[in-house]
């Protein structure tokens, strides 16, 4: 039986900046334990000398000329941000 504790949930959620209630930790620890259990069948596969597949259709070095293009207007893009000042995105206090 695979276990994935409430602490494990918090440990991994911290890396990806997801806040959790106690209830969340409980719920996800059971669900993720199930997931880990179900993917454990991958251990049966003989992958000796098999190369990992990173892309579904082989493509090599897709290049283009390094020329600047017209892109979106800065003000238009900034309008989506929660807060802005002097053409920059403003964030809450860092320290």
């Amino acid at each position: 039986m695979t276990t994935f504790s409430n602490e494990d949930v918090k440990y991994f959620a911290d890396f990806v900046r997801i806040g959790l209630s106690e209830e969340d930790k409980e719920k996800f620890s059971a669900q993720i334990a199930d997931l880990i259990e179900s993917v454990s069948n991958l251990k049966e596969v003989d992958v000796t000398d098999v190369k990992p597949m990173t892309h579904p259709v082989a493509m090599i070095n897709v290049l283009r000329e390094d020329e600047p293009k017209d892109i979106l207007d800065r003000e238009v893009m900034l309008a989506s941000a929660e807060d802005q000042e002097d053409g920059l995105i403003k964030v809450p206090d860092i320290l």
Binding site: A13, V16, I32, L35
Partner: peptide
């Protein structure tokens, strides 16, 4: 959330 946390694991 569940998938993000599992993916991080």
């Amino acid at each position: 959330k569940k998938r993000i946390i599992f993916g991080t694991y």
